[in-house]
């Protein structure tokens, strides 16, 4: 059974359409990446999943239950870290963690202390004195110290340093090994790339792609660096080549995945000395979508 299912969810705030007919499917045990630029609708989607916002249209379920009607029931098995962590300024970090754990009722005190140590967080400080990163750590410790079936993280590492980011990633992998499901929203692409089995890309309230990273790469361009004995002619005129650039003796360009063969055939005529071809990073994917219509062009090309 799928842990999260979102079918045709639309959310309007007055005349503004924050989410337009989105669909998501997260299977049990998956680490699911949800990426998009700021303001794309990531947090709105998460708040619908948490039953805080009511979808204008469509249906969303978690564990097969309705996210709006059965919110409290669902939340007994969920752990969540918000994107913008605001804490109660007069309480200490330690007190906040205890209060939050009490609300769920199944916090693990040993795990709490271990997490505090791993994340190097001083629990005796008042929350108003914490930096953004430390506030985020408080929320992370509270979320990770409790046992849940689904973990939802909204840009969990945006304030953390690389060392802490790595610790977070280790915990997420641990969760995944235990068979837990993780829903991770982010605009930090390397993170999603490192952790996630599946990703969905959201932009301006619409899911523009959902699938495994492998599938997505297939749809887009490869980065190619090539050096030949004789100068290459005719690259500019070839179909499917983008961002062509000559640096010293090397040519750098991107090529649509389905045009790779013909491009290689063409350049091999000039005597290849050095050829590098790199799969697109998520960043490239993302920028491609962001710039506009790469994907839809490719899709049309494929079909």
């Amino acid at each position: 059974m799928n842990v999260i299912e979102v079918r045709g969810v639309t959310k309007k705030f007055g005349n503004f359409t924050a989410l337009n007919n989105i669909n998501l499917t997260v299977g049990e045990g998956e680490i699911y990446g949800f990426i998009g630029p700021n303001g794309a609708g990531k947090s709105t989607t998460i708040r619908i999943l948490l039953g805080m916002l009511k979808a204008t249209d469509g249906k969303a379920t978690i564990f097969g239950k309705d996210v709006w009607k059965d919110a409290v029931e669902i939340h007994k098995r969920i752990s969540y870290v918000p994107g913008d962590v605001n804490l109660w300024p007069t309480l200490t970090g330690g007190e906040v963690i205890d209060i939050l754990l009490k609300l769920r009722g199944n916090g693990n005190s040993n795990k709490r202390d271990e997490l505090l140590e791993r994340f190097d967080l001083d629990p005796t400080k008042k929350c108003r004195a914490y930096s953004k990163g430390n506030r985020q750590k408080v929320a992370l410790v509270a979320a990770l110290a409790q046992d849940a079936d689904l973990y939802i993280f909204d840009e969990p590492t945006s304030g953390l340093d690389p060392l802490m980011e790595r610790i977070f990633q280790e915990y997420v992998r641990e969760l995944s090994q235990e068979g837990k499901t993780v829903f991770l929203s982010s605009h930090i692409l390397s993170e999603v790339e490192k952790l996630c089995d599946k990703v969905a890309i959201i932009r301006q309230g619409e899911i523009i792609e959902e699938g495994t990273l492998k599938e997505m790469r297939h749809l887009t361009r490869m980065n190619v660096i090539v050096q030949t004995k004789e100068p290459i002619d005719g690259l500019k005129e070839m179909d499917g080549i983008h961002h062509l650039e000559k640096r010293d003796k090397e040519w750098h360009f991107q090529v649509d995945a389905d045009k790779m063969g013909s491009v290689i055939t063409h350049i091999s005529e000039f005597g290849i000395i050095h050829l590098e071809s790199l799969p697109p990073t998520l960043e490239d994917l993302f920028m491609g979508f962001y710039e506009g219509s790469v994907l839809s062009e490719n899709k049309r090309g494929n079909r």
């Binding site: 919110a71 029931e73 969920i78 929320a139």
Partner: peptide, 14 residues
């Protein structure tokens, strides 16, 4: 409005 009730509503609080 300061995003603090979400700590409650993302947990089992009605």
């Amino acid at each position: 409005f300061q995003n603090r009730t979400e700590f409650f509503y993302s947990r089992a609080v009605s």
